[in-house]
């Protein structure tokens, strides 16, 4: 870790949909304290929240590593879940594999990944069936 990067790490509990969003809420608070502009905070908070919810719904939780530098904010969400069979399909708005119970709770509308893409400057997904998924979100801070 260089002096220029601040790291935040979170464990996301997979069984608890009610506390999903705690990590993104904390990151929002940190970014506000760092004086990051509201627009950037919004991009990070919303994209990270969506990815955090995905982790809880599909992958029984995981870890989130956030690295903040004056130039960019990088969020890496890694899980050991079932993996995504077809990433292109998963990126389509409205496509969802969430079970009925989750949908009944108002989640799983198939907007998660498309929304992350919309708010992130760069989004990378790597996934292996049966092993897990890693979502990387990068939001640049205009200098």
């Amino acid at each position: 870790m260089t002096d220029e990067i601040l790291s935040l790490n979170y464990q996301v509990n997979g069984s608890d949909l009610q506390s999903a969003g705690v990590a993104s809420s904390d990151v929002k608070k940190v970014l506000r304290k760092l004086g990051v502009s509201p627009e950037i905070i919004r991009k990070v908070a919303i994209s990270m929240y969506e990815a955090e919810i995905n982790m809880v719904i599909h992958a029984n939780g995981g870890t989130i590593d956030v690295s903040i530098s004056p130039e960019q904010i990088k969020v890496v969400l890694a899980d050991n879940g079932p993996g995504i069979a077809n990433i292109d399909l998963a990126m389509k708005e409205g496509y969802s594999t969430a079970p009925q119970t989750i949908r009944e709770m108002g989640f799983g509308a198939g907007m998660g990944l498309p929304n992350i893409k919309k708010y992130a400057d760069i989004m990378n997904i790597t996934s292996e069936l049966g092993k897990g998924t890693t979502v990387e979100i990068i939001v640049n801070i205009p200098q």
Binding site: E4, L6, R32, G35
Partner: peptide
């Protein structure tokens, strides 16, 4: 208007240093 009163330091760099120290 937004009133940024929660900033830890004057610049982002300074705020990051204070945040790291806080951690």
């Amino acid at each position: 208007e937004y009133i940024p009163v929660m900033n830890l330091g004057k610049t982002m760099k300074e705020s990051m240093e204070i945040m790291a120290k806080t951690q």
